[in-house]
Amino acid sequence: MGADAAPATPVLEVENLSLSFGGIRALNGVSFAVQPGSITSVIGPNGAGKTSLFNSISGFYKSTGTVRVDGKPIDHLHPPERAKLGLARSFQNIALFRGMTVLDNIKLGRHAHMKTGLLDALFYFGRARREEVELRREVEERIIDFLEIDHIRKAPVASLPYGLQKRVELARALAMRPRLLMLDEPVAGMNREETEDMARFILDVREEWGVPVLMVEHDMGMVMDISDHVVVLNFGQMIAQGTPREVQANPEVAAAYLGTGDVADLRRRVAAETRLPETREVA
């Protein structure tokens, strides 16, 4: 457990998680927890197993070990049931539905919480109409306004630039009634300004929605800036965890990233990449 572990029940607990693909050990006995209201980041070199970790938590990969949400084991649950519990996520390679508008993509996130059945849907009477209009209002007022995507709500997602697509993915995750927001590389491929916007949204989600965040990210500047807790993976193994400061000071982490033990160099590189001073105040 990290130094910042609180006595409250963690939102997510991962215990001794292991996963193999043929001969590759993608995850090897990984254990950590996400505390309520925190931003936890998972970092590690390419191929370290970060996405595999997310997919295991989502139930898409069948791993061994235990995953608990709010103290309850969820290992027997299928992915859709885990989604319903509030494990809301975005994907490393944007996974929007190209045949739908922005609005429909976002609405889709609420699927598991809606009750409209086939007959209701065919007649679009009573429950179907009520649920759809209610959902529309909530999506408009709580999500679209919040993420500043009013201007594209009716646009087909395929026509949007990359940065906006990532934002729509965040919107869809928010529509899932998140208990935990899991973001796989939310700012990969973004320019500086887009990165700052995204960092601000992530912090705002935590503040305004009270939703903790678990995030995989390669942008060290952003990770060190907004995380409360950092978990470091290398070759499927957790080699360190702690506050951003502790992790930065850890020689093993530096070695994993550089292939050498040159800690000073890593510190310099992290310092050079560190930006977003303004977001620290917001946090």
Partner: peptide, 19 residues
């Protein structure tokens, strides 16, 4: 919406709550 989601990306649809 669930039908279209299954058509476009069935794998992520499942993780997003669609059986």
């Amino acid at each position: 919406r669930a039908f279209i989601a299954v058509r476009d990306r069935d794998i992520s649809a499942e993780v997003l709550g669609i059986p």
